[in-house]
Amino acid sequence: MPTLVKAKLKISHHIANYNAERRHSALGYRAPNYFETHLQTTPQYRPI
């Protein structure tokens, strides 16, 4: 397998892991994908 193909595959796996599995303290120790989905499905408080 050529080196460029290996690098692209490794990068795509890292991005998938970073967004789907890795917990982030700034997001309440939730994964970014979970946080985004939860944010989109939760009604937001908006003062009038």
Rank of each mutant, 00 (worst) to 15 (best):
I15D: 03
K8T: 09
N19S: 05
H14M: 04
Y18M: 00
V5E: 11
A20H: 13
N17V: 06
H24E: 06
P43L: 12
N17D: 14
Q44A: 11
I11F: 11
S12K: 15
G28D: 03
R23E: 09
V5H: 10
A7R: 15
P43W: 10
A7E: 14
A31K: 02
P43E: 14
N17A: 13
K6R: 14
L4F: 13
Y29T: 03
T41L: 13
T37C: 04
T37D: 07
P2T: 14
F35V: 02
R22G: 00
Y34M: 05
L4P: 02
M1I: 09
Q44C: 07
Y45A: 07
E36F: 04
T37M: 08
T37P: 00
T37A: 13
Y29I: 03
L9V: 07
R30Y: 00
A26R: 08
P2M: 10
H24Y: 11
Y18R: 02
E36G: 00
K10R: 14
N17F: 11
Y45D: 06
N17C: 09
N33S: 12
P47A: 08
T41G: 05
R46V: 12
H13N: 15
S12H: 11
Q40L: 15
T3D: 10
I48F: 09
T37Y: 04
T37G: 02
S25L: 06
G28I: 03
L39Q: 09
K6F: 01
A16V: 05
P47G: 07
A16L: 12
S25W: 08
L9G: 06
L9D: 09
K8L: 14
F35Y: 15
E21L: 12
A7I: 15
K10E: 08
I48M: 06
K8C: 11
H38Y: 12
A31I: 01
M1A: 11
R23W: 05
P2D: 14
T41I: 07
Y45P: 02
H14R: 04
G28P: 01
N33L: 14
K6I: 01
P43C: 08
H24S: 10
A26G: 09
H13F: 10
K10T: 04
S12V: 10
